[in-house]
Design a binder for these strands. Structure first.
Lengths: 374, 374
DNA sequence: TTGTACGCGTTATCAA
DNA sequence: TTGATAACGCGTACAA
């Protein structure tokens, strides 16, 4: 026997399985087994191998393993390129929840952006068809399709978050937006509100459709037509909701028949809207009740504290990741194709009894002239 | 010649290079060349190969390529596990900027979390030593080290964001926190402020040290000792800055000698702090000037609008990613080991002339009793 | 300009 | 329980 190993413990990213095998005096196949199925190898040799691996700082090469076993342990999360709504609010929470769940189960998370251009679609398809990723979570957009490749046919488990795609056989984890809005609108109706102001997100957006529908449904239950709601917003060009809120405030100020209740589709919108209309002389909630979406913590510190419908992003992310993980472990698509995680309505002081719209309008005008009221 | 190919264009994630070669009537090596170096192959055969690849929906297998060329095109961004400060504010912006820059250059972004536990360190080291990632961006924490493996010796390019590690030969992209605070503190001193209230982030945190130092330096320039600043915060247990701000407000209310200027290390802290002290009867900025960190858009819509030091996260992320990309393309470590991207001070109404501290204190007490002032 | 042949580092099959 | 050996799919010398 000659001394084989007298090089430093770690050099670059070297240290192959063969090195470990040599140091432990076994074959590479035994090393592989010892590391993967510790049970299927003699305890003494296993210990020797483990020691050798430790000493050499051995780390298995991922590419080689992936190639051999024909799959990776990377999941991609597909985010819509154009951040919309309170996306800046919700994305990091989802990301964090997803990532923690994945790592706990031995997977890694890769970020992919899906814009409206073909190159980003192609990029995602390459990731999928090239075997880089093992599964995908997609947030609020349609599956990319380019030429004769389609993500739906890439043969990988896909779970949709927030956007209900269960009709196209993609298991979806969604919130009950529509119902939540309906509920809060009912409460507002019960408080005497009749005319509503709705600040929309990007037109055609799934959430926008759901939320608006919830509002209209509540009105219809109360025997009021859709004419009782004035829509604002809907521009795609605003990255942050704040600008939408400001624009909405300007629109609001021009209305002849003032709504007394506002439903904003993101907290950002509600915050800037409220700030602006307050400056213009309206009081919240005396003249105007406001409720918005997302559940941003900052709402609690507004004046008055804003009511908001909290999106359960952590639960959403965790549930989606777990579903995906189970799917990848089995091979079978999960049987439940649509899981609803309820939103929570956080009621704060921005909501109150409605005054007669006309009365409040007059008051507001008075106050605008004499800005330090009372 | 016989018909070779009569199977559907896409089936599962199959379609190997060999399939393309067969369909185009060439050798696999020619296909490989045609796809990688289109110039080094006859135009006609190139076109034939491209057509065949297109028809088959061929996508190169990433694992095989990575194994062959000995490197991947994945970058990991290491995020501190325990979200601190306005982390929830800044992380998504950095992530977005980094990801866009990387994708534009053909790289992919993987997320890694670095907690204080050994398992997360080990996980990151596996990613590095296992060749899963080609480079790393690390946000605001020290490089992980476990047993005989250390990220610094993994042989991969690493760039630090926000935390200055240029002394340990890790190129760092940082902001000028210290200088920005010094500058804003000078302005406050010029406005007559003498006593400062500092709301800290996690104790020992790099930014906290820098920012606090900047404040103390400004005081010293003005001939004032460190005793003129009261420190609050510093708890590690709060995930959001809001709680820290509330706690700070309570502390503030107990002080016998009231500061007239507040420096908060995140917008969250400033927002909840201001909300609370206003409820307790102090006026901003008449009794108390406030400035904070992060440049969150929401600051503009506070009452009064909050002054804040904007962290240039997009520029930071983009610069870091570009530096890393250049480093990976060359092989040489970049010569500039420390790049400073200046913060921008956004001056808003939360800052004004100082009143005599004692006078304002009395006023505040009066007002607390008669909450609707004037 | 193109084809042949080999190897990247691992896992899985098969015999011993 | 262990060892020899053959792939996994691609890139790249080298030869043609």
């Amino acid at each position: 026997m000659k001394k084989i190993d007298d090089n430093p413990p770690v050099e670059g990213s070297s240290a192959l399985m063969a090195d470990v095998a040599r140091l432990a005096g076994v074959a590479t196949s035994t090393v592989s087994r010892a590391l993967a199925n510790p049970g299927r190898v003699n305890e003494k040799t296993r210990a020797r191998i483990a020691a050798a691996a430790e000493q050499l700082g051995y780390t298995p090469n991922a590419a080689a393993r992936n190639l051999r076993v024909g799959k990776s342990n990377v999941i991609m999360i597909i985010l819509p390129g154009s951040l919309h709504y309170g996306a800046s609010q919700i994305i990091p929470q989802v990301l964090d929840a997803v990532n923690r769940t994945l790592i706990r189960n031995g997977y890694n998370l890769m970020i992919a952006n899906l814009d409206r251009d073909e190159s980003s679609e192609r990029h995602i398809l390459d990731l999928a068809f090239g075997g880089t990723v093992r599964g995908a979570l997609i947030l609020s957009s349609q599956l990319p399709v380019v030429a004769n490749r389609s993500l739906a046919e890439a043969g990988l488990p896909i779970v949709s978050l927030l956007l209900d795609m269960s009709d196209t056989a993609v298991p979806s984890i969604v919130t009950n937006d529509r119902q939540a809005v309906r509920e809060v609108a009912r409460e507002l109706l019960a408080l005497g509100h009749r005319r509503f102001f709705y600040i929309a997100g990007p037109t055609g957006n799934y959430h926008d459709i759901e939320r608006y529908a919830g509002l209209v449904e509540a009105l219809q239950e109360a025997g009021l037509s859709e004419e009782y709601v004035t829509r604002s917003g809907g521009e795609l060009s605003f990255q942050f909701g704040f600008e939408t809120g400001l624009r909405a405030a300007e629109e609001f100020s021009t209305l002849t028949e003032k709504p007394t209740a506002v439903v904003a589709t993101s907290d950002d919108m509600a915050i800037s809207f409220m700030s602006r209309v307050q400056k213009m002389g309206w009081r919240v909630p005396e003249d105007l009740s406001i409720v918005s979406f997302d559940g941003s913590p900052v709402c609690e510190y507004c004046a008055p504290p804003l009511s908001t419908i909290e999106q359960p992003m952590e639960a959403l992310g965790e549930t989606a990741a777990e579903l995906l993980i189970r799917w990848m472990a089995d091979i079978e698509r999960p049987e439940e194709s649509r899981i609803v995680i309820p939103s929570r309505i956080i009621r704060r002081e921005s909501i109150s009894q409605a005054l007669g719209a006309t009365a409040s309008e007059e008051k507001a005008r008075d106050r605008a002239e004499d800005n330090l009221a009372r």
